[in-house]
């Protein structure tokens, strides 16, 4: 957390805070493990993008956010939603396309949104959240709100035009936005470096005029500390900042993609840098009882299993709802 002067407190000061960070990462991992199981069992339709190995980033980012801060996400957004405060059971209902889901069954995994916690939506278009996030920040500024906007996107998005546009936009209007590039090195089935000129996302951001830092995105403490510092700058009115967080995605692009082209040794090496295992080691070293860690895992499993079961047995949305929420004027009826 930032102190009044804007300096982050030393990351290890507060065991409870680290435990909360750990719990969130475990919940994200368990949410997606459970969702993947359900997907493989044929219970969940549509595309599903999981983020095993990347959990430190959403958990560390959202630890410094307020409830009314807004966040835009991308296609790989389960962790972003959970970390911003969305409810796992309601997310499962949406993944299953059932009544009571966040989008009443109209969005699915790729379009989870929970406006009540400032989560302005996952996005099926790579880079789609960038212009929306800067606009949210501009709107908040116009309304004289103290809230900020956060934009989560992948390395792949940095090759789309809206990346240039949105960063430039945020800089010229000194907007309260934190850009977070989750760099897992791949965009679908292509290693991003093979299709990207220059020095990478942080160099691009700095060149545009958005101060950026590159960090180890698999170290939750570093993520949290960095975000606390950048958010303090943003809240102080110093304009946008970018965090380029390097990480690795253990699985393929979607739930059905084995990513067989990848060297298994590379994946194994990445698992050795598992962000959850790393934070666990820190917590044990700082004296947290192993039983407390087990309880966190057990609680996450119970939460996710009950969410899965409830969603699997929940009713489908009523057919008339297909015609609802299109528009007020000029709506058609079934």
């Amino acid at each position: 957390m930032a102190t009044a002067g804007g300096t982050p407190a030393a990351a290890g000061d507060n065991l409870k805070r680290l435990t909360d960070l750990y719990r969130m990462m475990v919940r994200i991992r368990t949410f997606e493990e459970t969702a993947l199981e359900a997907y493989k069992a044929g219970e969940i339709p549509g595309p599903l993008h999981v983020s095993f190995g990347q959990e430190a980033i959403p958990a560390g980012v959202c630890a410094s956010l307020r409830h009314d801060d807004r966040l835009t996400s991308n296609h790989r957004g389960h962790g972003h939603a959970l970390a911003k405060g969305a409810d796992a059971a309601t997310m499962y209902l949406e993944l299953y396309g059932r009544e009571g889901g966040y989008c009443r069954g109209k969005g699915g995994s790729m379009h989870i949104a929970d406006f009540s916690v400032g989560m302005l939506g996952a996005n099926g278009v790579v880079g789609g959240g960038l212009p929306i996030a800067v606009g949210a920040a501009q709107g908040l500024k116009l309304l004289k709100s103290a809230a900020i906007a956060v934009c989560m996107f992948g390395d792949g998005a940095t090759n789309r035009g809206p990346f240039l546009e949105a960063l430039n936009w945020a800089a010229i209007y000194t907007l309260p936005v934190l850009f977070v590039c989750e760099d897992n090195g791949v965009a679908a089935h292509t290693e991003t470096r093979t299709v990207t000129a220059g020095e990478g996302p942080a160099a691009r951001a700095n060149a545009i005029g958005v101060p950026a830092v590159t960090i180890d995105g698999n170290d939750a403490l570093v993520v949290e500390e960095t975000v606390a510092r950048l958010v303090a700058d943003i809240r102080a009115g110093r304009g946008p900042r970018m965090m380029h967080a390097k990480t690795y995605r253990w699985t393929g692009h979607t739930a059905t993609d084995a990513a067989a082209w990848r060297d298994p040794k590379e994946v194994e090496a990445a698992k050795q840098r598992c962000p959850i295992a790393r934070l666990k080691a820190v917590l044990i070293e700082r004296g947290l009882a192993p039983s407390a860690l087990d309880e966190i895992s057990a609680a996450a499993r119970t939460e996710m299993q009950s969410g899965r079961t409830a969603a699997h047995t929940a009713p489908w949305p009523g057919i008339p709802s297909a015609f609802e929420d299109v528009q007020d004027v000029g709506a058609v009826h079934g």
Binding site: R70, T72, F115, L120, G128, L130, P131, I132, A133, V134, G135, A136, A137, Q138, G139, L140, L142, L143, S145, A149, G161, P162, E165, A166, W169
Partner: peptide, 14 residues
């Protein structure tokens, strides 16, 4: 892109 998209983002916050 951002004129259009920022307009949307600003609408989403009211």
């Amino acid at each position: 892109s951002t004129i259009m998209g920022a307009g949307l983002g600003a609408a989403l916050v009211g």
